[in-house]
Nucleic acid binder design. Structure first.
Lengths: 363, 363
DNA sequence: CTGAAAGCGCTTACAG
DNA sequence: CTGAAAGCGCTTACAG
């Protein structure tokens, strides 16, 4: 049986084809496709039917070129392999899709040169806006340059001092302050701070909150108790050795983030320690893995996914109102108490004393 | 001091502006920007200088529209919150960027309707190609439709039966077969298979390899030893109860993937079990977290990141050679022996017997 | 080695 | 309510 003849090269169907098929003008077709109420319902229906029948595909590139408006948003992430950023990205993407946008995603892997190149590419692609989780050591100069491009930009996670841009992040000092205060209330006194690059702003902020809480409790922050490491599980695991070498050993650790805390827990377990008893560990971020660890990891939850959604929302609003005042949205960390933390030595003493008093009273 | 007057609305600089500034034609400018060797070096330099001086930005949308070629690739992922897919995505994106492409990323979250919608959007955006990690229950009809669009597509991870498309994935049956054989060699006989949706193809493949290894060893696969659960950490944790309810209890578990295995380990630990002694656990995927767990998780490594790179490479080659034969690239899983697995009861017996023999010989 | 012209597929005032 | 025309910024044969 002979096959139906097919055109050798498939020329894509355009609005011109639809116009011809319906006996209307291109303008009319375009207006129908845009859902303009100016076109008579009857005509609308005819156009839609023809479009469907011809297998028409709207060409956004052409529309964007002509209208000067894009519906692509560039999203640059500095460390996708950290679940925090993954959850953040999921939140961003979901919100953007819901608003009819598309996500051009790129991973900078903390490399400034790559970040620079990727930003330039995004610009050439004419993205409507940018969501940038800056690579380490990103300076205000870069942010100023991007702003100069006239592309609305929301910075996430790491603020850039002097950036003067919409920012979505967390109140880091408040978070570690609350975490540390909680451990102090549990009776811990030798509390370590573990993880992160000393030059990273988030590290500075989180360390500052930790130190503040100690001072507020009249505990002198000891230099030796601050242990730097890569902000990864491997980093946390490596830090255990240095932590255990301290004399006297810390009884609790406030971690830079959840993955460092999870690595620390694994490393401590390897050394035969029981987390929550021999060492209390608290993380920061509230990634999903924290709840599923053994023991479940206490953390300062900043809801990464919701932050992603918020970042996208702020950008979408900025796309509507270019002139609106700069937004700085800081999530207030929420303490999630889980079994990775337990009472400290001072609490043991206090509990013992209380028990003694109670017994005496009963006697 | 009066500020220099600035134009109210910044009209973007175009090749026409450059042409005017240099006294050449648009064509010449375009050719220079494309790096054509046809233009005199002198002219090239003049054009480049003018472009830089005017702050020209190449408009890829316009170029793509005219040339009919895009340098955007659509990437659809079914489950970004699983680190496997995250590492896969990182590999894909890195390779695409290196080749001068940009990644339009979207998360389908296993939703067929959303996947459908996202594919249509990618099409409207005129992506040059697609990398699709299909949502559950994606049928060959969808794949056929996408192929009909004329967009080169590489399927990853989950093969679609009858899809007849380039595919990059793993040899799943071989992986679980090797994992199970290893546990059998260690002396385990009651070996469970844990996790995944029974209707997912990858689950079927991995379960088949497990069952095959058992039969090859003359061990009858018991229905009760196959425990389904969500393919997440929480799923693995939930499965522990059902596993421990079995009589007699299994001494080892082959898991659907690494996150299920990690959840299972956490759950078992919660029940007071020591992984690698009371229960041997082996995962599948080779995600980074597996190495950092406590105890470190043995797994069948399929190098998710490398698979991402490979998927991108296959797509890039397809973009060059549309007519080349279909590629099916299956990664052979590599056994990573780690402390989450230990000897089984049969091995204990065997070791004891061997020791006895040796002693007798020595006597 | 370079220029004039046509056109990619769409949108948008402007008429009527 | 609809059409004719101009144009978004680029590329690409085709001349010369």
């Amino acid at each position: 049986m002979p096959k139906a003849p097919r055109p050798a090269i498939r020329r894509p169907v355009t609005i011109t084809d639809i116009a011809r098929a319906c006996g209307v003008s291109k303008s009319t077709v375009s207006l129908v496709l845009q859902g303009s109420p100016r076109i008579r319902p009857q005509t609308q229906q005819r156009v839609r039917q023809a479009a469907a029948a011809l297998g028409y595909v709207y060409n956004r590139r052409a529309a964007a070129l002509r209208a000067g408006a894009s519906n692509a948003v560039g999203v640059l992430i500095n460390d996708l392999l950290n679940p925090f950023f993954m959850e953040l990205l999921v939140g961003i993407e979901q919100r953007l899709v819901a608003a009819g946008y598309v996500t051009i995603m790129a991973h900078t892997a903390e490399r400034l040169d790559l970040q620079e190149q990727l930003l330039a590419t995004m610009r050439e692609h004419g993205v409507a806006g940018l969501i940038l989780s800056p690579a380490l050591a990103t300076g205000r100069a870069l942010i100023a340059r991007v702003k100069g491009w006239g592309i609305p930009t929301v910075i996430v996670t790491r603020s850039v001092p002097g950036g003067h841009t919409d920012f979505v992040g967390a109140d880091n000092p408040a978070g570690t302050r609350a975490a540390t205060a909680h451990l102090l209330a549990l009776g811990h006194r030798r509390i370590a701070f573990v993880g992160g690059h000393a030059d990273a702003i988030v590290h500075k902020q989180r360390k500052a909150g930790y130190a503040l809480a100690l001072r507020e409790a009249g505990v002198r922050p000891a230099r030796a108790l601050v242990v730097e490491c890569q902000p990864t599980r491997a980093g946390g695991q490596d830090a255990v050795g240095r932590l255990l070498a301290l004399q006297p050993q810390p009884t609790a650790a406030v971690c830079y983030n959840d993955i460092v805390a999870l690595g620390l827990m694994a490393g401590a377990a390897q050394h035969g320690m029981t987390i929550g008893r021999d060492l209390s560990v608290i993380g920061f971020d509230g990634i999903a893995d924290a709840a599923q660890a053994y023991p479940p990891l206490a953390t300062m939850d900043i809801n990464p996914r919701q932050q992603g959604e918020r970042a996208a929302t702020v950008l979408l609003e900025r796309l509507q109102h270019a002139g609106a005042p700069t937004v700085v949205a800081l999530t207030r960390p929420r303490l999630l108490v889980r079994p990775s933390i337990g009472p400290g030595p001072a609490a043991h003493a206090a509990t013992t004393a209380a028990l003694r008093r109670r017994r005496r009273g009963a006697a």
